[in-house]
């Protein structure tokens, strides 16, 4: 039990690093994730493509009809095409609005989760350092590095979070 707690304490730096890495990775993957979710939630796309195909067919049919000879049929078909086009436009508009809403909700949810995770980490390691070094190694900046723990030679959560964020963002530059 004691061994486990020592292990957990010694892995605090790794825990913080993994959290930061995970958050940054998720941030990169967020647009594709929200697109995937919105595709799952919206099943009208198939219906829309069907409507588009129908409109295309009707337009072809309309081009085959002579307006002079069969005016009534021509007008009827044209009205039908207009009606379906309007319906399609309304559907697309609704779907786009819904998509934007889904993306917004996912983004907000992600940022809330990220903030909660960071606050939890800071709360947990507020008084204990994520790792401890011999104090002479970090001599001129030991207080700054140890903030807010105040432990001599310790590396505080704030400093470690900043360092991890910077390094992870550099590492993830190739991923965009």
């Amino acid at each position: 039990m004691v061994h486990c707690s020592i292990m957990a304490a010694s892995c605090a730096w790794l825990l913080v690093l993994s959290s930061v890495l995970l958050c940054n990775l998720l941030k990169i993957l967020l647009p594709s994730f929200s697109s995937f979710i919105s595709r799952l939630l919206q099943k009208d796309a198939e219906h829309e493509s069907q409507m588009r195909a129908e409109i295309q067919n009707m337009k072809q049919e309309l081009s085959a009809i002579s307006m002079m000879d069969e005016f009534a049929r021509y007008a009827r078909l044209e009205r039908k095409i207009n009606k379906m086009t309007d319906k399609l436009k309304t559907n697309v508009k609704t779907r786009t609005a819904q998509l934007a809403k889904v993306k917004w909700v996912i983004n907000i949810g992600f940022y809330i989760l990220q903030a909660a995770l960071m606050i939890t980490l800071i709360w947990k390691y507020y008084l204990e350092p994520v790792t401890i070094l011999p104090s002479k190694w970090i001599t001129p900046l030991e207080r700054l590095v140890a903030f807010p723990t105040g432990v001599t030679g310790g590396v505080g959560i704030t400093c470690w979070l900043v360092v991890c964020n910077k390094v992870v963002s550099i590492m993830l530059v190739p991923l965009g």
Partner: peptide
Amino acid sequence: LCVYFFTFIFCHE
């Protein structure tokens, strides 16, 4: 400095 410190801690751990 960030890269240096990170590598140092990583190496140390």
